[in-house]
């Protein structure tokens, strides 16, 4: 059943996302693009773009978007419930059974190992997205500007997204000729 499939895919993704919404990207790529073929690489990047400029957490936004696109309102509910359920279960169990603490040395060590793996997974996803979607020198220019603003000036993500949107509209809609002559 498709609704169960949607729920289960996002349950798995939620269960293995450590360190915030962006850490789910490698899992989304494997599940949704390679295994289920629900999305293409470029669509996933579009969804992540939308997810981060919409209010709410990125993980829930991305889940709702994919579910709604596949199977309408009910689809969106099932993917959202799927991505939330592992969080709810794990935290509720820890809260009631382990008296609020999760700082067991073995858990800490396992977590360190998982994080090292996640860094590699995210790096790999970034490289694939970069190759697939930054196809000309204007895209590359926007990417470099964004990196400088983020890494050197720690600018707020929303300001950065606005900057990207303004540059995109300026280059492709409002002043395509003038700007491209200028940048030649």
């Amino acid at each position: 059943m498709i609704y169960f499939e949607l729920f289960y895919s996002f349950f798995k993704i939620g269960l293995f996302t450590f360190g915030g919404g962006y850490a789910m990207i490698p899992l989304l790529e494997k599940e949704l693009i390679e295994n289920k073929k629900w999305l293409t690489n470029d669509e996933l990047l579009e969804i992540m773009s939308i997810a981060q400029m919409t209010p709410g957490t990125i993980a829930i936004n991305a889940a709702t978007f994919v579910g709604y696109r596949e199977k309408g309102f009910l689809g969106g509910l099932f993917t959202t419930a799927g991505v939330i359920a592992p969080s709810y279960l794990v935290i509720t169990i820890i809260y009631h059974l382990f008296s609020h603490s999760f700082e067991h040395p073995i858990a800490q060590k396992a977590f360190m190992g998982a994080r090292a793996c996640i860094v590699a997974l995210i790096g790999h996803s970034v490289w694939k997205m970069f190759k697939g979607s930054v196809t000309d020198k204007y895209g590359l220019g926007i990417f470099i500007i964004a990196c400088v603003l983020l890494f050197a000036f720690n600018i707020h993500p929303i300001l950065l997204i606005v900057t990207g949107a303004v540059l995109g509209l300026a280059l492709y809609v409002f002043f395509p000729k003038q700007l491209k002559d200028l940048l030649k």
């Binding site: 962006y22 970034v126 895209g139 983020l150 900057t163 949107a165 280059l171």
Partner: peptide, 21 residues
């Protein structure tokens, strides 16, 4: 045009999140 401008920014944000981890 909007997505053309925003996609490279999204990739930069994901890279930044990876760097934070």
């Amino acid at each position: 045009a909007f997505f053309f401008g925003i996609k490279p920014v999204t990739i930069a944000l994901i890279l930044f999140a990876g760097w934070k981890i």
